[in-house]
Nucleic acid binder design. Structure first.
Lengths: 346, 346
DNA sequence: GCACTGGATTTGATCGTTCATATTCGCTCG
DNA sequence: CGAGCGAATATGAACGATCAAATCCAGTGC
């Protein structure tokens, strides 16, 4: 075996203390509790720290203080046939929000043959992270059960059960879809369909429930169609059935932009003009929909606010030991674009 | 300020050693150098470790051994108007590959007002990570210069300069595009255009150079069109200019699927039938193209092989101190779909 | 002049592991 | 039978910081 690269040792507190003519602890305080130093001392010490380029060793700091300044984010699986729509944008927002708070994001994923709980347990047992950020939270998510049981800090994008810590943030999907149905109703549509994926994701259920509430409220004829799987082929097939059957709906609310892509594809093939023959609305505001003609009415998720709220709640648990007493529901923002057609058309 | 949550201390080597009737070091060896133990001792010790649920504290281990088992990945910025196409798939592959090697991925991003080099320096100085994985590497990328200068381990998706460590992996973009041009030529096209983004990304330059080499080799009339920015509006505008001008090309090779989305949009609006009036080929094989009709001919990147090779090279540097003597070039895989039209058409 | 105060600074111990170096043990061999 | 040896295990000393508690010190009140 080749020789291991010699570890490079850097500047330590001791070095700085000696150079500044003060003690170790004063250096430590200069960085962690500057108010404890007399202004002149602080300035002198800071100058030496700067000059020597001293930066505390994170491992040593962690060992002693018990805090890692790292948050684990279990990466959702990303099936190419059904890519996690929000992965990019949400991760982006999370990295930014945690970075501002001085924490970093550790991406984790169960190893082959390892359960999700085991993966979490490994990090907790090795004291590698201070807390977890979860997304794509399912009803009865085993990760929530595990973390709740272990009493380990976490925050979840998606609701937890009433008996679990209410450190979650979620979008009011139902209300947003009710709004969409209202927009559709205002344009005179009576036969409306909801296109859902049937994978049992709670957010999809919320959106579907919002649809049903919306059609009830507006006295519309509404039906729900489910796609067995979320890959493009299945979506197109299911949509074709929906658009070529009898009593074709004049408006479709899709449970996600990804599903709406299928609607556009089929509508084109069937010679239906979106915005005229068929109104379409969806959910998520994916970047790719910017290429759709006519532009798609959809619901934008406040990803940055969500990420910020999640991080803030998580850090409150980690740093202050305070668990939120209730979840936080943020509104989705409907973005009205031409795919709905003009007001008062048929 | 609320009381800080008391740190939960777990099982330590000492506890295990006492329970097993051996010394600390033997426990350590059982985990890090099992061959040093007599089989029967190993078994006995392992049983105790298992029973007490002992797991070494990562911070303590890092402090002493100098190794963190963490790789930093500077997250590319993800502009919603021009989302990083590969982010999802590549990150996925990287997390998997590093996980298999027992390393985790730390996502990092410069804080506001912080340069990229400073962000790297912060991690190095605090000894938070063992190495860096870079993607979206530019020519004269300042991160490469910095890491090379610091002599810190890294691996890059994208070529480095000759005077820098050759720990890079890249795709043979040029050759793949040459192949695409060959496919186009075989279908009888003579007037061919390359649609590029002009943001100076080296991979785009490689693809453009491949195009130019291809048209030269096949004796075609080839022109390069650049889109000033990669957002959908600009792409559509530029493409419209290309498709409605005089001497409209009969085939377009796009520098990326994202650009090809614009071609589909404009072709539709202009009544051009792809595969008949216009042949289209692109690059990246993004999931979303599965919705395009007719399906898009493109080039698939071997993301898993790339990630695996990058991690393997990086770990060789970190663990064995061996820097690769040459970069690794992997082929892109052309995926032929109907957007090219039939052989010997126009 | 002296005890007292409260902030600033120092001191000693400790976090949990692995490194480097001893020590022990069981055998073989002269 | 004891020296010699290699493998297995044990011991002391870091690693580099922060915690907890002690000490110092200038200023105040009596």
């Amino acid at each position: 075996m080749p020789a291991r690269r010699p570890r490079e040792r850097g500047v330590t507190v001791e070095d700085v203390a000696r150079a500044a003519g003060v003690s170790r602890q004063t250096i430590s305080n200069a960085l962690n509790a500057p108010h404890r130093l007399r202004p002149e001392t602080l300035e002198r010490v800071s100058a030496v720290i700067e000059k020597l380029g001293y930066r505390p060793d994170q491992s040593a700091r962690s060992l002693r203080s018990g805090t890692r300044r790292i948050i684990a984010y279990p990466a959702p699986v990303d099936d190419p046939a059904n890519p996690n729509a929000l992965m990019g944008g949400f991760l982006e927002a999370v990295v930014t929000a945690s970075g501002e708070a001085g924490y970093r994001i550790l991406l984790v994923r169960p190893r082959p043959g390892q359960s999700q709980e085991q993966a979490l347990d490994e990090l907790i047992a090795a004291r590698s992270v201070d807390g977890f950020l979860l997304s794509d939270v399912l009803r009865d998510d085993p990760r929530l059960a595990y973390l709740s049981g272990a009493g380990f800090p976490f925050a979840a994008f998606g609701r937890t059960r009433p008996d679990q810590p209410q450190s979650w943030v979620d979008v009011d999907s139902a209300q947003a879809v009710i709004d969409l149905v209202g927009l559709v109703a205002a344009r005179g549509h009576r036969r409306v369909a909801f296109l859902a994926s049937s994978s049992g994701q709670p957010w999809m259920d919320d959106r579907r429930d919002g649809f049903l509430a919306g059609v009830r409220r507006h006295g519309l004829a509404g039906h729900v169609y489910s796609v067995p799987r979320d890959d493009p082929g299945e979506i197109v097939t299911a949509t074709r059935g929906l658009l070529t059957g009898r009593d074709r709906p004049t408006a479709i609310v899709a449970g996600g932009d990804w599903l709406a892509l299928g609607v556009y594809t089929v509508a084109r093939a069937e010679g239906l003009e979106i915005g005229t023959d068929l109104a379409v609305a969806a959910f998520d505001d994916l970047p790719v929909t910017a290429f759709l003609q006519p532009a798609l009415t959809t619901v934008r998720l406040p990803l940055h606010r969500i990420a910020k709220a999640l991080i803030s709640r998580l850090l409150q648990i980690i740093e202050d030991g305070v668990t939120p007493r209730a979840g936080l529901v943020l509104p989705g923002e409907p973005v009205i674009r031409p795919s709905l057609g003009p007001l008062h058309a048929p």
